[in-house]
């Protein structure tokens, strides 16, 4: 299993979460710690960069849902980029794309940021 890493770039009011590895149950603490760090910097927009994530399972989806709930409660907007076609399909099935707009590349996402 590829261990998960998340590197955050904060440029308030935005933050980019560059994720690498497998998005599974094991990423929960790292993702929620990163979220709290961003939220503590008064970030209002968070871009989740999935371009270096190639495995997401149902536990990983639940981590994203927990983060989405927190961000909605705090009035922050989540966007995403770099999802493979398969994971765009999964996000669409689950309903996440209604709440987390997806852009093909980080450049497109940053323009809409």
């Amino acid at each position: 299993m590829q261990s998960f890493q998340v590197n955050i770039e904060i440029d308030s009011p935005g933050a980019v979460f560059n994720m690498r590895g497998d998005l599974t149950h094991e990423c929960e603490k790292k993702m929620l710690d990163a979220y709290e760090k961003a939220a503590g910097s008064n970030v209002k927009k968070i871009l989740l960069n999935f371009s270096q994530v190639d495995y997401i399972n149902s536990a990983g989806l639940s981590v994203l849902i927990t983060m989405l709930t927190k961000s909605q409660n705090a009035g922050q907007k989540l966007t995403a980029c770099g999802l493979s076609q398969h994971f765009q399909k999964i996000f669409d099935m689950v309903g996440l794309l209604k709440y987390i707009p997806h852009f093909a590349t980080i450049d497109e996402a940053m323009q809409a940021f």
Binding site: S58, A59, L61, S62, V63, I65, T66, L68, T69, Q72, V94, G95, L96, Y99
Partner: peptide
């Protein structure tokens, strides 16, 4: 998803 986002069911359980 709506029920999960409003805390009416756990975030898990998509398998």
């Amino acid at each position: 998803l709506r029920r999960k986002l409003t805390g009416k069911e756990p975030a898990r359980g998509w398998g």
